[in-house]
Design a protein around this nucleic acid. Structure first.
Lengths: 299, 299
DNA sequence: GTGAAAGCGCTAACAA
DNA sequence: TTGTTAGCGCTTTCAC
């Protein structure tokens, strides 16, 4: 150790990797960082990974098919010890058919078939709980904000399913006019979708936004239209990003168990890396969700 | 190419790096990702780096001295082709004295001495412009939010200097009661600092928050206290994060030229990597800032 | 023009 | 226990 310090010796990681066949890196593929949900997820993953002496390399997909494919096929991904992939642009099945040597764990979406492990959240049940919360508060004309008609089995579809299930259970007849899509899943998208609802004269007394930023955007539009969030319109989001604590009013939401997703995903990946070769059965893990009541649904 | 496709050949990056002495990776050292400013900066850097065929590896320092040192001394940093370092915990001078073989460009803070290149923003001038904007709107009792008494030459000190310069130029006598510190530079910190100001009965008609999240937190506290942002209290932030466009009211701010900082920093680093060996004189580059007027200072 | 070979720095296996 | 060596896959040099 004295000699190391004196000579300033640093091991050459390339040489070590070449020899050992391990790089000590895992790739985290997410659409973007600007979205607080993914920034927080990335931090959680990095923390969990460092607990296993792994460095996390973030690759941004932009949610685009082409870039997802390019990254999956890149030498960098192949050289990594493993990868966590938040699928967005690719079809669930396509990923399964890809021939990737690197251990790959999918995150956050429900994938019907495919050989890959999956760590995800209880989208349907959580969305149902969110909607039920609004119904319990006496709301009946609930806008579902963030529908994505072209989507296959992504979070939008699943959350819509939960929304419909809650309405059904409560005996509320759904109105397709209150199921609205958003061009993008950000504040802007939520805001303008909500504006459309108001402009079209659609009646509503609550909004279930499929994620928090959509909800925050919607809250702003609702307020700008002279309505009171909570008194006139109850709003609940999904994700539990930090921002939801700091809006006016604070926004009720679903904590989908993001931290747990990050931890579980890294653990499964580490197991796969250790046991690569053996192929046990595919794992499908679900994090626990939690309803978080704040001012926006307080009445 | 046909053979590559058929055999599924992927170059082994470790071997390539060992031979070439280049890893194609640069390390970006920032305190956190939860803070939108850094998330957006990270995206900008990753984009700029990919333009030079470089992969960005993010390392989180938490703004802590110890972790900054640990990362700087880590084999990973040494194996990278270069690094961008947003200094926070370490003293400006210490970084200069460190013996790092990897080309290192400092980001975002003013460093008095030291051999390293620096790409930063015009903190003093921009802060002065923000304060002047409030004065131009007829405000005189302006709270400076985010002071950090123990800090040396970080952004807090510089922005405070700009604030004082603007007051001085307008002939407004500064009141130290209106220079308030924040425990942390996030919404919570801004919110509770503002609460303290209100509880202490300090009079004010405007707030210059040293960054956007402090400003957003302050806006919420001000509103919860029954005051109107813009009519009773004008608020301006610093950073121009996406959120400032989506608050109620939208928040005026300073765009410090973050995108330009990212581009310049990567360019300087790439030059340093290419020319390592030769040591030209230290570069110190400043991005252009821009005042962005929104509702929170509209009156 | 094509082909062969040395060696980057490390680790694991083996020899002493 | 301590010391020696082969070889990971690539690139660059050198020989042909």
């Amino acid at each position: 150790m004295a000699a190391i310090a004196e000579l300033g010796y640093r091991p050459n990681l390339s040489a070590r990797s070449l020899r050992s066949g391990r790089t000590g890196e895992i790739v985290l593929m997410i659409p973007e960082l600007r979205n607080a949900y993914f920034a927080e997820l990335a931090e959680d993953v990095m923390l969990a990974a460092s607990g296993h002496a792994l460095t996390t390399v973030i690759e941004l997909t932009g949610g685009e098919r082409e870039r997802e494919l390019a990254i999956l096929n890149s030498p960098r991904l192949q050289s990594a010890d493993g990868a966590l992939f938040n699928v967005l642009g690719l079809d669930a099945r396509e990923v399964g058919q890809l021939n990737i040597a690197t251990p790959l764990v999918l995150l956050g979406e429900h994938v019907i078939e495919g050989p890959h492990d999956l760590v995800t959240m209880r989208n349907v049940e959580a969305a149902k709980a969110a909607t039920k919360h609004l119904i319990d508060k006496g709301r009946r004309r609930i806008v579902a904000l963030g529908a994505a008609p072209n989507e296959d089995m992504g979070s939008s579809t699943l959350r819509l399913r939960g929304y419909l299930a809650a309405l059904d259970e409560a005996g509320v007849v759904p109105d397709s006019a209150r199921v609205v899509s958003a061009s993008t899943w950000d504040r802007r998208g939520g805001g303008s979708a909500m504006q459309r609802v108001i402009d079209d004269g659609i009646e509503f007394d609550a909004v279930f936004a499929f994620n928090d930023v959509l909800g925050l955007g919607a809250m702003k539009t609702v307020q700008d239209a002279g309505l009171s969030v909570s008194r006139d319109v109850a709003v609940i989001g999904f994700d539990d990003i930090d921002d939801a604590t700091w809006s006016s009013p604070t926004m009720s939401t679903i904590d989908p168990g993001r931290l747990q997703v990050a931890k579980l995903a890294v653990e499964v990946l580490v197991e796969r890396i250790a046991d690569s070769g053996n192929d046990w059965s595919r794992k499908e893990l679900y994090a626990d969700f939690r309803l978080i009541e704040r001012e926006s649904t307080a009445r």
